[in-house]
Design a protein around this nucleic acid. Structure first.
Lengths: 242, 242
DNA sequence: CGACAAGTTGAAAAGCATCAAAGTAGGTGG
DNA sequence: CCACCTACTTTGATGCTTTTCAACTTGTCG
């Protein structure tokens, strides 16, 4: 939207005025810088706040008793972190940074208050939660019904689109902080198989790659290759206008 | 909670007073009865309302170009249907009943208004959306990282717990309207393999089955067998009380 | 009774996991 | 500046889980 760093993706569906944006900011603690690999909140811990990601990449994942891990969300700048566990007595997910990151936190009490003082923000938060459900539904479809090659492609394209949305990607060039093990945990594959699928995508000419970056030279070709639809998000629709 | 049929699962996390429940009811159209196999809303159609399921089972699924289908949600009585597509210009999901069902609808405009007139309902709806995210995260973990036998077991247990929550299941006995093809589409398996896994669960003594029902004789044993944690939902927590 | 949907079974093949080992880059300390 | 360490990537061989395909069985409902 603007050239400024994205503060909140909350305003993605309905425009918030300055006063509302201010109210949101007031609810946030001052930003905290964390190193790569920092655990923000561990699975099983009590939940008394959620977080806003100002910069960096954060993963949210579930650990299984057998040592396997499923990453359920790749968080990019502007995202709200840790909200699903609000409805649980103990956090479902572990949140950890895979790059240096900047986060601030919102106490649950403040969040609840916002719904009363600024209903429109409440509605915006609700819509963001629905968007997260769409993301999860698409990933579930990907993991459940799409073979590995296209599954990896779908994921790369998804990240591309979201990075572009927050102004961190242009010309299909993505600074890539994830290991192949991470990608495996995101897509329900082994890192070995992810490696082979990446090589296959390179052989197809759909992507190029060096150590720190992935390049999608022809985004439209990638879109054709991926069997999931590109999602068209509403913005300030009829039914939201009073 | 009560012996009465569950109207809204919306009140699961915070108690709503009579006036609020009334406001919710007022936003709903009068209930409509639909036959088994009725499509409520098809993928790709415009989105101008969401639905409340009063009775029956409804599936929500995504169709892929290759003809495969991924069911992303099994809806039980009390559920809100179709909300994720609110943020899209065109519905992501197809909703169809697998039993005779009773639904009523809520226009998006009314839903938006509720956030302003009854912020507490807005907050409750937000929390329900977070719960749906937890369900999706658990299913994603299931499909991504849990082998077929335990995956089927986890799903049966999940449905058991939710049915019990809305008073439609006791003593581990579940009236079962889903075909093995449905279960396959829910879990990312083929119906053939679902069939074999069900037989294996019977051989293990974890379930029993006849044509219309599934029985979990020892729910605790089932819980031990399943590698996902049982979710403990908050109800009326500190931070929600003003 | 006959038709259709769903469940069941077996055999073969595919896709992905597993295991093990070697290769590569980046960072650190001597 | 080199040597080493660590984390990550890459490669090959093998095996298992699940799919695919096809046929057959069972139940249901007109």
């Amino acid at each position: 939207m603007t050239g400024a760093p994205p503060l909140f993706r909350v305003a993605e569906f309905s425009d918030l005025d300055a006063e509302e944006l201010d109210a949101l900011k007031m609810s946030c603690s001052s930003p905290r810088e964390i190193a790569r690999g920092t655990v923000i909140r561990r699975q099983g811990e009590p939940v008394d706040q959620i977080y806003v990601l100002k910069a960096g990449w954060v993963l949210s994942g579930l650990d299984l008793p057998d040592g396997h891990n499923q990453v359920v969300k790749v968080h990019l700048p502007g995202d709200i972190l840790g909200a699903p566990s609000m409805v649980l007595t103990t956090a479902a997910e572990t949140l950890w940074s895979v790059t240096p990151a900047t986060i601030s936190s919102i106490p649950l009490r403040s969040l609840a208050r916002i719904f009363h003082t600024h209903p429109k923000i409440g509605l915006s938060l609700f819509l963001c939660a629905q968007q997260e459900r769409i993301f999860l539904m698409d990933r579930l479809t990907s993991v459940g019904r799409i073979p590995a090659l296209k599954r990896v492609a779908a994921f790369l394209l998804h990240i591309h689109d979201r990075l572009q949305n927050c102004g961190e990607c242009k010309d299909g060039l993505i600074r890539w902080p994830l290991t192949q093990q991470h990608v495996g945990d995101i897509l329900g594959l082994t890192s070995v198989h992810v490696n082979r699928m990446l090589q296959a995508l390179i052989a197809e000419g759909l992507i190029a790659r060096n150590r720190q970056a992935i390049h999608i030279p022809d985004v439209d070709a990638m879109r054709d290759f991926v069997p999931l639809p590109t999602r068209q998000w509403v913005h300030d629709p009829d039914w939201l206008r009073d």
